[in-house]
Amino acid sequence: MPTSILRDSSTSLYEQIAHRLLEEIQRGDFEPSGKLPSEAELGQRFGVSRVTVRLAVGKLSDDGVVERKQGKGTFVAAKQVRHGLDALRSFHEALLLQGLKPSMHVISHTEQAMPEGLRELFDGAERCLLLERLHYVDEEPIALGRSHLPAALATVVWAEVEHQPIYSVLEHVTGQPVTRADLAIRAQEADKALATALNVKRGAALLVMERTSYFANGHCCDRTTFYIRPERYAFVLSGVFKN
């Protein structure tokens, strides 16, 4: 059914359409796929040209409400994931706590010589396991994790524990829980391999989180570098400030 808009209003047609679509998005009318009707369908619905529709959708895109996916259409923008820095949580757990349905996929796992720059960190260990996993939210890649882990984890059948956080696997294999982690955050451009894995353009800006984790005895058990799509992720730190 056509949807009426005010032709003699001081508010432009495209702004009225953008406001109407925003109300419908907030109401959940386009769930579960999140896909909006095509420009042609919206033009017919509101009785306006495709140019007017394009302006309305453009406004929603500029406001971060929708995102255009080339060759697929326009979708309600995914909610941004917030990673708290004030608690010890695995990357996967941080996603679960927000009511999301994350998944992980093991790309590779190889026992290899410990990189020279990490040997001292791992108390002189000569061997390690290099594990690469892709993290997904809503079936879209959100981060690639590259982990250097104790060589003891090379015996793990990763296909069987693919969806378990590294911290859980570490505790299961060693009997020791992870008790501390240091985080460092920086930015980096996506090279060809990262761009392909994360479905972004080569040279796109990525958030990089470097995590170094320790057992209670002070021994390092994990050095993981996460390469994260920044439009889907934010780091937050909560604190109490006193006058």
Rank of each mutant, 00 (worst) to 15 (best):
V208W: 15
L207Q: 06
E120N: 09
E210H: 15
Q16A: 07
E189Y: 11
R20W: 00
T212Q: 11
M104L: 12
E93Y: 03
I107Q: 12
M1N: 10
P230Q: 07
L22S: 02
K192R: 14
L153I: 03
S108H: 09
G218A: 01
L118F: 03
N217Y: 07
L153S: 06
G124P: 00
V169K: 00
T196Y: 14
R229E: 08
V76Y: 00
I5S: 09
A197E: 02
C128Q: 03
V157L: 14
A193M: 10
D191W: 12
A87N: 03
G175H: 11
G34R: 00
A205E: 12
A143F: 13
D86C: 11
P141L: 07
S10N: 13
H172D: 11
S4Q: 07
R27I: 06
E23N: 13
F215E: 01
L206Y: 03
S9A: 15
G175P: 01
G47I: 01
R133C: 05
L36P: 01
G124R: 12
L95R: 07
E31F: 08
L21A: 03
G175E: 11
E231Q: 12
R127S: 08
Q16W: 10
K72M: 13
P177R: 13
Q112G: 04
G58N: 13
G99Q: 08
S12E: 09
A197I: 01
Q176V: 09
I17S: 02
L13I: 08
H19N: 07
H135V: 04
Q80R: 13
Q16L: 09
Q80P: 10
R119I: 01
A204D: 11
H163S: 14
P141N: 08
E39M: 08
R211F: 03
P141W: 03
R68H: 12
T179N: 05
H219M: 07
L129E: 00
S12M: 05
S10Q: 15
G28W: 11
C221D: 04
R54T: 12
P37Y: 01
L100D: 08
V169P: 00
L60W: 02
L121R: 05
L85F: 14
E132Y: 00
Q112M: 06
V161T: 09
A159I: 10
A87P: 01
L13P: 06
P141I: 02
E39K: 14
V53Y: 04
L96E: 14
I142P: 00
R119N: 08
L121F: 08
L60R: 03
R232H: 13
R232N: 13
V156E: 00
V161W: 01
T179A: 03
Y14Q: 10
A205G: 08
E120L: 14
H135W: 09
T74E: 12
S238I: 09
L121C: 01
L100F: 12
R7H: 07
H172C: 10
D63K: 15
R54S: 15
S213Y: 02
Y233T: 07
P102R: 13
F122D: 01
Q98K: 09
G28I: 08
